[in-house]
Nucleic acid binder design. Structure first.
Length: 328
DNA sequence: CACTATGCCTGAGTACTTCG
DNA sequence: CGAAGTACTCAGGCATAGTG
């Protein structure tokens, strides 16, 4: 699934597991977690300055192609935090030395910095870690209990593909439009955080097909499957919503505000019926059970039986009984 | 020990300015 | 005149501290 999508936004770890699981015919949370533990799915900050799941073999070229732009944009914040080029360079050396042959938790890595007299307070430590990830030096490794670990990218993704320049642009365009198409050049630029000019150049080189709809050019790599009836409970931050700049084909402006209340950048899980976003939902997971509350945007947004089976599919994924389902 | 409260951190969006 | 860059906002998540 991750290979097909190219990259999966994973700001919220639990939601991202479901973003993958909801696209599998019978995926379980355990399976997705195992793929992460084994490194088959790798986590880093390849684009837009946000954490993503990546196919291990593609992590290196994706980070190298897309992260440098973000790293430049972070310059101002780094100056605010007093992170001089000298401190950045020292931190990179410390990360390289302390992670060679091993993995360390976030807390342990911050201690390494502190021990070298690098202040990690008020987000400085966090920024050094993301900068190192965006420089393709480190990435997130397996979980250690509930703690995130970091690893050297070259160690955690051994033998990763090397793709540069135009070849990398062509590959990212093909990957995006295969899974996200039909989509516009602006959608692609938004997703990758490439400039619109570069995005268009990538599209030109990738030999994609296009179709005009309401005066806009939509690109795609393969003919889509014919639409099927479906009622889905998609994850928060799901690619179906995050993967496009223009969401008007799937949701009205009014309803979009219910997905992102206050336009605050926090995307709630969505109910999608036959391609349209028709509601939001939330789940509560305890040690023994799952409860789900669905909030449709309007009456008859979806059939009750379909919502029930979608909710049960989620409970199966988590591996716990669905104790309660409310539809408000 | 489980639950709740607190406060900081966060990324996407918007509006605006600057650039080419 | 569209693209790129900048400043600012906001609510959820998370770590941590506090409470029953």
């Amino acid at each position: 699934v991750v290979r097909w999508l190219g990259a999966v936004q994973a700001l919220d770890f639990g939601q991202a597991l479901w973003a993958v699981g909801s696209r599998m015919s019978a995926g379980t949370m355990e399976l997705v977690e195992k793929a992460i533990a084994d490194g088959e799915i790798l986590r880093s900050w390849p684009m837009r300055g946000t954490i993503h799941f990546l196919p291990r073999e593609d992590a290196r070229w994706m980070v190298r192609l897309l992260a440098p732009r973000i790293l430049t944009k972070m310059g101002r914040r780094q100056r605010e935090l007093g992170l001089t080029p000298d401190i950045l360079e020292r931190a990179m050396t410390l990360f390289r030395e302390s992670l060679t042959g091993t993995r360390l938790t976030r807390a342990a890595l911050l201690e390494v910095l502190e021990a070298a007299q690098i202040d990690t307070s008020s987000g400085r430590g966090y920024h050094l870690l993301t900068a190192a990830a965006q420089s393709a030096l480190i990435c997130l490794g397996p979980l250690e209990g509930k703690q995130q670990t970091f690893a050297l990218l070259d160690e955690w993704a051994p033998g990763a593909r090397v793709l540069d320049g135009n070849a990398a642009l062509i590959e990212i365009a093909r990957r995006y439009f295969t899974s996200h198409g039909p989509a516009t050049a602006h959608d692609f630029a938004h997703w990758t955080a490439l400039t619109v000019t570069e995005a268009k150049r990538a599209i030109d080189m990738a030999e994609l097909r296009s179709v005009n709809v309401e005066g806009k050019t939509y690109w795609y790599a393969e003919l889509a499957q014919p639409p099927v009836e479906s009622t889905l409970l998609l994850a928060g931050f799901d690619e179906y919503f995050l993967g496009y700049k223009d969401r008007s084909p799937i949701v009205s402006a009014t309803d979009a505000e219910k997905v992102v209340p206050g336009k605050n950048g926090v995307f709630r899980p969505t109910v999608v019926a036959n391609g349209q976003v028709v509601g939001t939902w939330q789940r509560t997971i305890t040690t023994k059970k799952v409860t789900i509350a669905i909030a449709p945007f309007f009456a008859h947004a979806a059939r009750k039986a379909d919502l029930e089976s979608a909710a049960n599919r989620y409970a199966e994924f988590v591996g716990l009984p669905l104790a309660k389902l409310t539809i408000e």
